[in-house]
């Protein structure tokens, strides 16, 4: 086995929204009445691999198949030690076109 550095950018191959709170062991702080839907997608990184990921965008009118996405690190929850835990999510690249 060897390590391979994946591209940070890719294209959106498939997507949906998560409209209800995932059951435990979901760790997000957005549980119960504080929940806001998040996007989920399959992002193709170059010609290497497709990865499933949260998306920063959950508005269906702002997500398009083939749009360019970039990896970002976003706040997720605060743990028992009061530390902020981050997670990864792909964000639309501003000005992205529908090019495949």
């Amino acid at each position: 086995m060897s390590e391979l550095l994946l591209p940070r950018r890719g294209t959106l191959v498939a997507w949906t929204t998560q409209g209800f709170v995932p059951k435990l062991p979901y760790a997000g702080s957005d549980k119960a009445d504080r929940f806001t839907p998040f996007g989920v997608g399959l992002v193709q990184l170059g010609d290497v691999i497709r990865v499933e990921s949260r998306l920063t965008e959950s508005d269906p009118t702002k997500l398009r198949f083939g749009m360019e996405m970039e990896l970002s690190i976003v706040p997720f929850y605060v743990d028992d030690a009061d530390d902020e835990i981050m997670t990864f999510a792909f964000a639309p690249v501003s000005g992205s076109t529908d090019s495949p």
Partner: peptide, 10 residues
């Protein structure tokens, strides 16, 4: 699952 992706419906 912790990241909210272990949801079959999605």
């Amino acid at each position: 699952a912790e990241n909210g992706q272990y949801v079959t419906t999605k």
